[in-house]
Design a protein around this nucleic acid. Structure first.
Lengths: 338, 338
DNA sequence: GATTGGCACTCGGACACGGCGAGTGCCAGC
DNA sequence: GCTGGCACTCGCCGTGTCCGAGTGCCAATC
């Protein structure tokens, strides 16, 4: 096990490197932190830390920089979550309070998070499966054409066209709408499949085909759109990445454009408190030099979706984690109110 | 006026520079294009072109590169719109045909355009004011709470919560819904304000307040969301911008994150055929080294929104214009079918 | 008069050299 | 176990040099 002081040295290295973006040497370390020991001692400690794989030298005769493993230890053991300052909190609240609908909430959140952390922000729309149904609406657009609209308790709305196998009268539409709502309104999306499975049988034979079509469209919507939508912002912050730009930034931008990748990324963030994935811990190789800080948010006690930021492994973890957590909480409140 | 050959020299310079991304000299020009004259003559022509402001030298003793004015002349007089190859056309059609709803159409379009042009693509959602109303739905969520849903002929759906000043009975809701639809269904959004203005008077006094509230929410939605939504993709292509990255790419990314800027950008594209804005012709200074190629698209003969790409001034104009035009046409078709 | 070949000149980019200094590892002494 | 000292390494930066692409100008040619 590493001694207390060695951990302290690692913490100092991480902090300095995050601040200066330059490899940090033993002398500079002792000057900027009062470790109570001489550079020579620090050098010995550094040699051990390097041996253990927590830090590395870019080249001989250069200072040390933390490795992914070093950051991991830092995040797990050495750093807390830095709470935001009261003005920051007020700013968040003010900024989010002005939102008029769900799109607006999500849009504002992503901008806020990007600004606060100066990194790339990712916000997932509230998931359908973990939401509850507020209302199902069925509109007859043409004799054999319906529109299905789903409204969730988080304010999310999904719509789908349904082409019916047979004309479907206005009264049948009203009937189906009423029965559907009495079955599923107020229930969780995840429970919907069971709740509606017996519905077709209670209709006239001639209408059963259409009812089944509507139901399968409904279920399809739940599956397809389950986790699908997310929004990203603050990509301009990528330009602060490093000096060696093009090579670093390219794969990151590409990864961020792939919704699938992002969804997987957030999907991997399973820790209910907060998940931090550092460098190579991310499966996608374009993101091997980035870290992801993500957390779930929700209107109640349960998470309905996730949000987070993507930034260089060399990031201010305590500050970023604080901002992400705070934003998630406020968004949860806003959703609960609406 | 410039002689025929000088125009030819300019065209050659633009083509070579776009291809190689390097200043082009007189000797290389004569080697790659059979202009039928010697380098010396080309040099004279270049001197004239520079005099007139169509080309410039980055430094003395370097080759020439086109100026914004040079590109302008190239686009206006020297270049056509390059039609896409049949395989490309087929690819577009296949790719867009799989779309299930409007979000999907727009999402696919933006990816397609980015891929095809290898630049940043911007697609605006069909505007409300230029669409027609397919249906207005009114749902009673609570005694004094309604949800208003607007559906357009382009498949776009907008929803808003309405808090009523007084409880509003189910029959009143049905009544208002029916009257609203008979008034506005099938009409253009732009005409809605007039069409509904007398509506409150035909209701019981006790309901008038609510009716007015609903109507004002409706009108508000039209105004607020009019042109608002757009989607952007292919930012990873920015990395192909130039060697001097950080400085160039930063302001562009920042500009692209501002919806307002983008909307203004597309708003300036007024030419019904196709608008090309080159370098400093763009008002936003972050985009001074980019060109924007934009065109309207629509389900019928009239444009309901715009789409386009943003790329370096040094872009393949004929190819880009061809791709943008082709995509706009196909999207128009898709919208007309749905 | 336009075009051409020739020529001197300019200047940026690539490369080699050398000094500087930060940082290291090791060791002997406390 | 900590410390100061010391020799060593090596990347960075500034300088100097060379090379060549490209230019402008001019006199000769068609």
């Amino acid at each position: 096990m590493l001694s207390e002081r060695r951990l302290e040295v690692l913490r100092a290295i991480v902090q300095d490197y995050v601040g200066t973006e330059e490899p940090v040497g033993s002398k500079a370390l002792t000057e900027r932190h009062n470790l109570g020991v001489s550079p020579a001692t620090v050098r010995n400690d550094m040699a051990v830390l390097e041996e253990e794989g927590f830090i590395a030298q870019p080249h001989t005769s250069a200072g040390r920089i933390p490795t992914d493993k070093g950051y991991r230890l830092f995040v797990d053991k050495l750093a807390g979550v830095k709470p935001l300052s009261p003005p920051e909190r007020r700013a968040i609240q003010n900024f989010l309070d002005g939102a008029v609908d769900l799109d607006d909430v999500v849009g504002r959140t992503v901008r806020l998070l990007a600004q606060l952390t100066r990194q790339v922000a990712v916000v997932q729309y509230p998931s359908l499966t973990r939401s509850t149904v507020r209302h199902v609406e069925l509109l007859s657009l043409a004799p054999a054409r319906l529109m299905l609209v789903l409204i969730t308790d988080t304010g999310r709305v999904e719509q789908r066209m349904v082409d019916c196998p047979a004309p479907f009268g206005e009264t049948s539409v009203a009937d189906l709408r009423a029965r559907l709502n009495s079955q599923v309104a107020g229930r969780r999306f995840a429970d919907v499949p069971q709740l509606v499975q017996d519905l077709p049988e209670s209709f006239d034979p001639e209408d059963r085909g259409t009812v089944s079509t509507v139901l399968s469209t409904l279920l399809e919507t739940l599956v397809e759109e389950t986790e699908e939508r997310l929004v990203i912002g603050g990509t301009a912050n990528l330009t602060r990445f490093g000096h060696d730009f093009p090579l670093t930034i390219r794969p990151v931008l590409e990864a961020l454009e792939e919704q699938v990748v992002l969804l997987k990324l957030l999907g991997e963030a399973t820790d209910p408190a907060m998940t931090v994935r550092i460098g190579h811990e991310n499966a996608h190789e374009g993101l091997n030099s980035t870290s992801v800080v993500a957390v779930g948010y929700g209107s109640g006690d349960e998470a309905v979706a996730k949000l987070g930021v993507v930034g260089p492994t060399r990031m201010d973890y305590p500050g970023t984690m604080g901002a992400v957590r705070a934003v998630a909480r406020y968004v949860g409140q806003i959703l609960a109110e609406s």
